[in-house]
Design a protein around this nucleic acid. Sequence first.
DNA 1: AATGAGAGTCCAATGCACTGAACAGAAACC
DNA 2: GGTTTCTGTTCAGTGCATTGGACTCTCATT
Lengths: 265, 265
Amino acid sequence: MVETRTVRASENLGGTSPAPAVTRAAAVLDVLAASQSGRLTLSDLARELGIPKSSTSNLLLALEDADLITRQGADFALGIKLVELGAAYLSRRDEVREFYRFCEEAPTLSRETVRIAMLDGTNVIYLARYEGHPAVRLTSNIGDKMPVSLCAVGKVLIARLHDHDLAEMFPDDLELPVMTPKSLRTGAALKAQLQNIRSQGYAMEDEESTTGVVCLAVSVPTRGAHGPSLGVSVTALKATYSQEQGEQMVAELQELARTLGNPMG
Amino acid sequence: MVETRTVRASENLGGTSPAPAVTRAAAVLDVLAASQSGRLTLSDLARELGIPKSSTSNLLLALEDADLITRQGADFALGIKLVELGAAYLSRRDEVREFYRFCEEAPTLSRETVRIAMLDGTNVIYLARYEGHPAVRLTSNIGDKMPVSLCAVGKVLIARLHDHDLAEMFPDDLELPVMTPKSLRTGAALKAQLQNIRSQGYAMEDEESTTGVVCLAVSVPTRGAHGPSLGVSVTALKATYSQEQGEQMVAELQELARTLGNPMG
DNA sequence: AATGAGAGTCCAATGCACTGAACAGAAACC
DNA sequence: GGTTTCTGTTCAGTGCATTGGACTCTCATT
């Protein structure tokens, strides 16, 4: 945490930014979310954001007033209102409801750990998790972010993008985050897999984020003009994973994806 | 939705409000979260908030820029960033992690549906849910809000408050929200239960929010000076519920509460 | 076509939110 | 005790964000 980023009106190059206080307030939330302990003092935040303490004080008062942050003694932390707003977002996505319904009734998936995720830049965010049979106890929670290169859903979702976008997001020499010895290490390695994923219609992750764990994922056709990129995945233990079981799970995932893509549910 | 509330600097009576743009931006999020469809146009929002369209436009641009809202054609909706921030909040609460760990290992609770919630005004917000044996398929999700009068956790949490606070929050003649024939209907009825809850150390909900379902809840001792009011609850089917089973579950809930209240986990 | 009601955008004038510097309190150091 | 280095708060001046009204565009209705 050495770098100090300045959030000024001039930040958005190419145009003057409206409501700079809002932009800065959002930056406060980001900094709190990214901070190790989740608790920072006014001065910490002012330093981190590169804005005067007096201005920061005003921002924090307004944010606290709106319950978006809480004051804990001298420290500030994210507020419970954010959980509530996040839940409000999810409650509007009826894919989530349909996802649960489908998982409960699917012959194989109903006994597995299934997740639905959406693409957000070069990460995926998990929207819901179904745990039919918690053989695999996941550490990831709803709302958690994961680099696309490290999970099957991530790979299957970026496989939908155009090559020139991919080239921009993942230059050949880009160093990817590494979590296990099997993690993909460069943009080139990642892009090399995509053609294969496109032709077979699903993606696989083989111990790339967690040793001993494999994932299969399928992309959900975008419903409507403004929908996000969604994908569904199953997580299984490598030790008990078999080819036939994998094929069955992919088939059910594909049916789930079709169901979610269809506006009637 | 007839009433139009005006969000001006003078809103916070008793003092001028700093960073009014932030206060208004938070109001935008609230309105979107509260709206039926979750999608409103710029003009809708301007009307609802009682601020000029041009100002609203600026707010929305800034919010969109921060990913806190998304534009879907002419409509605006809550953004995925809120889910992410909500998850960041939860990830910092280590009570949640400990809650899961405890539930998995507890003899009885590990096979039940258990939740942890926190008090937020006259509502509780669910922070996590453990589903050991999904006999009871809950419709509530993490981040969902519930009036305290309708659930066991709510009742056990307000039982900790002082009488004068209770008198203010729940006047005798206050009409409470009703979801089943057994729901408590007035502030007086709610307060009448509290003395009993205090003396027995746990609260029960008997088909007050969902017919056929009972809940037991215990309050978690507040850890540290600035901690929120937390409670844990089990949900069971009334049909299969027995006295002995209830006693066992209360005992385990109390142990869970002690564990969570203890700073070492 | 013509009209009206809705949407969102634009821009100059202006009033208020931001800020810098000075201030005060707490804690840590020598 | 004195000094330094934190913390957060206060306030008057000023520069920029806000805003009202005019504008454009789209879509129904007559």
